[in-house]
């Protein structure tokens, strides 16, 4: 299985998972008048009857992409549909959906003769950008206090919320994300970066309450990792 195939299958399956995760959200947003609308973009909203079809089309496109059928078309359609959902309302926005939308369109371009090389390079860069800004944005008093980590721990790990542990975990999270971003484009450090990155995503799945979202995020990110070993990227830093 080629690295690009791994990326395509991973992103397709993650898209399907995200569709299942957002399915009830879309249905309630469209059909429950008690929910406060918080529009992000002035798109027409799906009716209560159409919302399940939006989610079903999304899941279907994810599976079609994973199967490798007409990738330039399915990738573009998936990016457009996910882009529509994530800008529909503040409550449907998520960084994971944003990443999924960007990677879907890059995947579509990577399956065309003309744009293949720059699209592959951008797929690699995109993940570096995500890790780098994830680390940079966490450098603030609120996160460094450990409060955010303590509030998002699952009940089974509630004992970690005591004392200086959350603050120590906050520093560790920033250092780890920054290291993964730094190392992925450097051949000498790439294997170490991948090992640390895999560990980081395992930690996210185990230690963050939103398990399904973290699994989908892990699939999205880890499916890109083989691309760093596909060839010698022209843009890499020695």
């Amino acid at each position: 299985m080629s690295p690009l195939t791994v990326a395509r299958v991973g992103i397709g399956l993650a898209a399907t998972l995200k569709a299942l995760e957002l399915w009830p959200v879309l249905i309630r947003l469209a059909g429950d008048p008690r929910v406060v609308q918080m529009p992000l973009a002035p798109w027409p909203r799906p009716s209560a009857a159409a919302a399940p079809w939006v989610a079903a089309a999304w899941a279907g496109l994810g599976l079609t992409l994973a199967a490798g059928k007409a990738v330039p078309v399915t990738g573009t359609l998936l990016a457009a549909l996910v882009g529509y959902v994530l800008t529909l309302d503040q409550q449907t926005y998520s960084n994971h959906l944003y990443l999924l939308s960007l990677l879907s369109v890059l995947l579509a371009l990577a399956h065309t003769e003309r744009h293949r090389e720059p699209a592959l390079a951008l797929l690699r860069w995109q993940l570096v950008v995500v890790y780098a800004f994830a680390a940079a944005s966490k450098i603030n008093a609120d996160f460094l206090s450990g409060r955010v980590i303590a509030e998002n721990l699952p009940p089974a790990l509630g004992w970690l919320a005591a004392g200086p542990v959350p603050a120590a975990l906050a520093v560790a999270a920033i250092v780890t994300e920054a290291f993964v971003a730094w190392s992925l484009l450097r051949p000498r450090w790439r294997v170490a970066g991948v090992i640390v990155g895999v560990g980081l995503h395992i930690a996210f799945v185990l230690a963050v309450t939103q398990t399904l979202a973290m699994i989908a995020f892990a699939i999205i990110c880890l499916s890109i990792y083989p691309l760093y070993f596909a060839s010698t990227p022209a843009e890499e830093i020695p």
Binding site: L40, Y98, V129, A134, S137, V148
Partner: peptide, 24 residues
């Protein structure tokens, strides 16, 4: 992809389109 998240770092966190996941 570099300018937008950089600009978002100047705003109160967490801001959208800046990869500010669990940042605040």
């Amino acid at each position: 992809q570099i300018l937008v998240p950089s600009w978002q770092l100047t705003k109160p966190r967490p801001a959208r389109f800046g990869w500010q996941m669990y940042a605040a």
